[in-house]
């Protein structure tokens, strides 16, 4: 593609070049720094991450076998679950006390493993609801159209641009429930972009997407990096991780066991053990 693409990748690669491949390695410019995050359900410790930093402007993959606590960690960081203890900072602000909507407003927007399209609303409505700090969403202003009509038109224009980019523009008036699984994933991503996030957290973006759409989804994720966004995503598919991730963090049994570039990770015995161990367990069930 163009030179821009190379610029984004190059910047991310350069920033991560000297970082040692060990868990909790410090980054040049971390947008997210978490320390001592622990979440226990009853006696079971689901997440116990000592330290992690996420490089700004890079695509970081979070991988690990089933039950490693990746989604729970995601939920904690985005305020959808409360940690037993731990603290983290996002973009220089303390984020562990924030509620989920405050986290989203501060610029860290997530998507879900099982897509959460608002089924009985149109695609365009789905997009418009994503726009942040709308005046017309305040109860006192809602009945007075002239207060928010202009803002609504601007949001609609932006929404249509995004839908165009995600090839959903011709579906704008369809109910979101009518879309295919892959289209819903695209819609969810497009909707998240309506918030103009600094960092986007994708929970298994490829799950349930047919192979034809996969490639275009990958391109979309790469584009996000070129626009200066930070991406953190959970994924199982190592091929995909190899193709787009600049950096990989590996979780197993709730802990961060290692970090590194995709090449370093594929060669790491601990990762292979973690996966194989998990597969052994799964086979016995």
């Amino acid at each position: 593609m163009s030179d821009d693409v190379k610029a984004g990748v190059a910047a991310a690669k350069a920033a991560l070049a000297g970082v040692p491949a060990e868990p909790g390695a410090p980054k040049q410019d971390a947008i997210l720094t978490a320390t001592g995050v622990r979440r226990a359900f009853g006696g079971l410790v689901a997440v116990d991450v000592a330290h992690i930093e996420v490089q700004r402007g890079a695509i970081t993959a979070l991988i690990g076998p089933n039950g490693a606590g990746k989604t729970t960690f995601f939920n904690l960081l985005t305020g959808f679950d409360r940690p037993s203890r731990g603290s983290w900072e996002f973009d220089g602000r303390r984020a562990d006390r924030m509620r989920s909507y405050q986290v989203a407003r501060s610029g860290m927007v997530r998507t879900f493993q099982l897509t959460k399209a608002l089924s009985r609303m149109t695609v365009l409505e789905n997009m418009l609801i994503g726009a942040d700090r709308q005046r017309g969403e305040r109860l006192w202003a809602a009945p007075f159209r002239w207060l928010w009509l202009k803002e609504e038109a601007q949001n609609a224009a932006r929404a249509l641009d995004l839908l165009e980019r995600f090839k959903l523009a011709d579906k704008r008036d369809h109910y979101a429930g009518e879309l295919s699984g892959g289209q819903r994933k695209l819609l969810e991503m497009a909707r998240a972009l309506m918030l103009k996030p600094k960092m986007i957290m994708l929970d298994e973006p490829m799950a349930g997407v047919n192979p034809a759409l996969k490639q275009s989804l990958l391109e979309h994720i790469k584009d996000l990096r070129e626009e200066g966004m930070t991406v953190l995503f959970v994924e199982h598919d190592m091929d995909m991780v190899h193709e787009i991730a600049d950096w990989v963090a590996v979780m197993a049994a709730g802990q961060l066991i290692t970090e590194g570039t995709p090449d370093q990770i594929s060669a790491d015995q601990r990762v292979i053990d973690a996966y194989l161990g998990a597969h052994h367990d799964a086979a016995q069930h």
Partner: peptide, 18 residues
């Protein structure tokens, strides 16, 4: 619209900063 969104899926609406 936000109300309807909450009816459909409140987690999703929460993730959008509402």
């Amino acid at each position: 619209r936000v109300l309807k969104g909450i009816r459909e899926d409140e987690e999703a609406v929460r993730s959008l900063g509402k």
